[in-house]
């Protein structure tokens, strides 16, 4: 099982995503934004960071980079695609996911261990969770406020496309406390929190059990591996 991680100029969490994929049991494959080659991978992760320095709009320039034409084709043909933080912003700018992400309503960058509720287990990246599962995953963003018009929000809610919802605190003013969404087919998922930072004991978020022991994010990656094995 080979899962590609695309590095854009300004990506930060590509190595962490690769590590999470390896811990989950798949082979991470480094992909470069300037190529037109997905190297035969079975799934794709768009990592967090500040591609192109967040110039123009977060994710806007990366969404038009060469490899994205292959990513868009692959996504439309059902390949699992995950966008984390800046990767989520790239997916909405590439119109693979609806809505938009705007500056946090309080105006500050926020970094915290965030509680989330898993709202859909019918996606390629969440099939290993229990529905309603409460997890803790690090969150770090300045422009993570999810917005969409009323019709789009209703459609997301009605079609089981809201995948993760913030619990306790809405850290950025996101509509309906939305932390992550999926496309209609469920193969493309984007979320602002960082599951790849909650994949290894000793390096994860604090939990009630022990400091830095949280590994809830690993299930995102093992879910994709399970989804690919059933194809």
């Amino acid at each position: 099982m080979r899962i590609g991680v695309i590095t854009f100029p300004g990506s930060l969490d590509d190595r962490d995503a690769q590590r999470a994929i390896r811990i989950a049991g798949a082979k991470p494959v480094a992909l470069w934004h300037g190529e037109h080659d997905l190297m035969g991978v079975d799934a794709i992760v768009l990592p967090g960071g500040f591609s192109y320095g967040d110039y123009l709009r977060c994710g806007a320039i990366a969404a038009r980079s060469p490899i994205m034409s292959e990513v868009i084709d692959a996504a439309h043909s059902g390949m699992p695609v995950l966008g984390i933080c800046n990767g989520f912003q790239i997916l909405v700018e590439a119109h693979l996911l609806p809505g938009g992400l705007v500056r946090n309503d309080h105006g500050d960058f926020i970094c915290r261990d965030q509680r989330l509720r898993v709202e859909s287990t019918s996606t390629a990246w969440t099939n290993g969770f229990e529905l309603g599962h409460e997890i803790i995953v690090p969150l770090k963003n300045g422009e993570g406020g999810f917005i969409a018009d009323r019709d789009t929000l209703n459609r997301l809610e009605d079609n089981d496309q809201v995948v993760f919802r913030y619990l306790g605190v809405n850290p950025n003013g996101s509509a309906h406390d939305i932390a992550g969404i999926a496309n209609e087919a469920g193969n493309v998922v984007g979320l602002m929190p960082h599951p790849e930072h909650a994949a290894e004991e000793g390096f994860g978020p604090d939990t009630p059990v022990a400091m830095r022991s949280g590994t809830d994010g690993l299930i995102v990656f093992t879910s994709a591996i399970a989804a690919l094995q059933t194809i």
Binding site: L56, R57, A60, R64, V92, E93, G99, G100, V102, I147, A148, D149
Partner: peptide, 8 residues
């Protein structure tokens, strides 16, 4: 299509 994002 590029200079603006009509969603926001």
């Amino acid at each position: 299509n590029l200079l603006s994002n009509t969603v926001i």
